[in-house]
């Protein structure tokens, strides 16, 4: 395709979408009349646009929409519950560590009961951290997610 045809390429989509300004429209029309290759390209593109316009997504029935809001609220509640649980669990672990270190009265059994969840949490933390670091290197979505 000749170089001067390149500038007309995106304009073809603009024209098919009815979004091209009058001046660009006239330039493109003139070019299409003179360039059989771009004209053929335009015809193919027109078919793709017409066929894509016909796509329809299966919209769920009314029952799904009737319970949609309840589903969203359930998620909000669950998230709130999890946040409360995690904050409470972390506070308990911190308290346990403090008792473990500072209180001589704590029996071996109490110390084991405190140590086991602490070690478990540390293992989970290290595992998640390692996975995140690994994924950050190979993940093709990470740069596209807008924070």
């Amino acid at each position: 395709m000749p170089n001067d045809c390149d500038q007309f390429q995106p304009m073809m989509s603009g024209r098919l979408d009815g979004e091209l300004d009058e001046l660009s429209n006239q330039k493109l029309q003139k070019h299409l009349a003179e360039c059989p290759r771009c004209s053929a390209e335009y015809q193919k593109l027109a078919r793709i646009v017409a066929a894509t316009d016909r796509l329809r997504i299966e919209i769920p029935p009314d029952e799904v929409w009737d319970s949609f809001l309840a589903g969203a609220y359930n998620r909000i509640e669950r998230k709130t519950g999890w946040v409360a649980f995690v904050v409470g669990a972390v506070a308990l672990v911190v308290l346990g560590i403090w008792l473990f270190m500072m209180e001589p009265w704590a029996s071996a059994l109490v110390k084991i009961l405190i140590a086991v969840p602490v070690v478990g949490l540390l293992i989970i933390f290290v595992s998640v951290l390692r996975e995140r670091l690994f994924l950050a290197k190979i993940d093709r979505y990470s740069r596209e997610i807008q924070r």
Binding site: M11, S13, D17, L45, R47, I48
Partner: peptide, 27 residues
């Protein structure tokens, strides 16, 4: 406009790969 166009050009390429007959050169 340019992203939509790229998407359509890529679609056309994918459809030509599977030889969709309606993408022929009919007017």
């Amino acid at each position: 406009m340019s992203r939509l166009h790229s998407a359509r050009v890529n679609l056309r390429g994918l459809l030509e790969d599977v030889k969709v007959s309606s993408l022929g050169s009919r007017k």
